[in-house]
Design a protein around this nucleic acid. Structure first.
Lengths: 243, 243
DNA sequence: CGAACGCTTCGGCCGCGGACGAAACGTCGG
DNA sequence: CCGACGTTTCGTCCGCGGCCGAAGCGTTCG
């Protein structure tokens, strides 16, 4: 017989299916999307985001935790859930890219979406027009090199960031990229991710340049931030207005 | 009431769920994995890979095509399916990374896996020990810069590739990265993807350095290839042996 | 031109898994 | 110590969707 061995559990394919099936449920996808904001959320909050009851949500959270997608931390009578690793966030990102590229789902961009398009978090870094502009500016000034999908921090870039008081954590043995690009689903262009992106977001939050929105991944640019982004990076609010 | 608007279809989250749900079925995941080999396959071949009947497979293929995951081309009485875009391949890659990182699924690496670990295709480029070694060598010689997740082709690199008779297609308006890294699920390190990776694979096939395996993504290194990889890149078969 | 082949469509079966309400568990506040 | 709250567990229901066999179309070959 010419037929070779059966195509049984094809090693890794099964693992993919398991993970994808978890992400593939609407309620769970909503939960994961909410956690893409980068903060840990309580089961109750996630239940709200998921759009299903607390009981159902609890089941979903248990499954995703067991599969290694989520990490849990108890704090008093709350349980905080967050994405277990940056890998999860990246997988979500690529799925977003595919979903966005797919058949044009007639999607009238509401005002809510508009806020997301202006500036939002993408797991642990900045996205939207602010995120992409930031990447552009750092590139123009030679602080990072964005060549067509690749990303590198230059020595000048390190100096510049150092002058801002930003040392990028070295996290020795960590396999986390220093600087990578991430496809922005709303702008369809790249913004900065990796440890550099994380540092920029953390800094912007700490110094009060931007503020998180409680119910969405959108962030609002404060007055202080508006000033600082202009002086440091040459990004004004007009640059970020919807075109 | 303090509750804001309902958490209804959270814009993009739903699209993610749709895509992920498609990938999340074992049969479909097998189909997509098979197509990660980079070649177009007939419905019949895919049915074999999927491990389900022809009728069922046909339904799966229709769904994935409609969702924009697959592209179809009829040729005689066959219908050839392939991944619709590199984005799809990248999404599969990130899911593999998550799946591989997950809870250590007791997985005794069979001899079949061993061939995959040595050299295989990853959509349109090379992976496995051959793929990662190739990336290492090009990096060591300064032809590409692999800095911690970022990837760039240097001018020296372009010259070197040119001297091999390899012009990397420019594909003007294309948004496809010239050179990106791709996490190798077996080696847990990076190999080269993007247009550069695609060019290297295409070249290796055309010149007969490697040959595809009909039933899997594994490729075998020919005698000619063994010689060329040694002289051009300094990669010998010993480098590629299981450790 | 009829038979074999490749693939898709149709109809029906069946099991998995998501949804909820009720109740149990654990924590914080008075 | 008791009641309110956040979360999980349990039991149940039910609908979606994968699977197959049979039949229908289009193509290729003898």
């Amino acid at each position: 017989m010419g037929m070779t061995n059966p195509p049984f559990p094809l090693a890794s394919a099964n693992g993919i299916a398991t993970i994808a099936a978890l992400i593939g449920d609407p309620a769970r996808a909503n939960i994961l999307s909410a956690l893409m904001g980068g903060q840990a959320l309580t089961a109750g909050e996630l239940s709200w985001h998921a759009g299903v009851g607390a009981a159902t949500t609890s089941g979903h959270l248990a499954k995703m935790s067991e599969a290694g997608l989520l990490a849990m931390e108890r704090q008093g009578r709350h349980r905080y859930y967050r994405l277990a690793s940056p890998d999860i966030a990246q997988a979500m990102e690529s799925l977003m890219a595919v979903a966005a590229a797919g058949p044009r789902r007639h999607r009238p961009p509401g005002p809510k979406d508009e806020a997301l398009r202006t500036a939002r978090t993408c797991y642990d870094h900045l996205a939207g027009r602010l995120g992409t502009k930031l990447a552009d500016r750092l590139n123009e000034r030679g602080f990072v090199i964005l060549d067509d999908g690749g990303a590198l921090v230059t020595d000048d870039g390190r100096d510049f960031l150092g002058s801002l008081g930003l040392a990028i954590p070295d996290t020795g043995g960590d396999r986390r990229p220093l600087c990578r690009v991430c496809l922005d689903w709303s702008e369809r262009r790249h913004h900065l991710a990796g440890r550099l992106g994380a540092t920029l977001l953390a800094c912007s939050l700490e110094r009060g340049w931007i503020a998180r929105n409680p119910d969405s991944r959108a962030v609002t640019i404060t007055e202080a931030g508006s000033k600082e982004f202009a002086t440091i990076f040459g990004i004004t609010l007009e640059h970020l207005a919807a075109k």
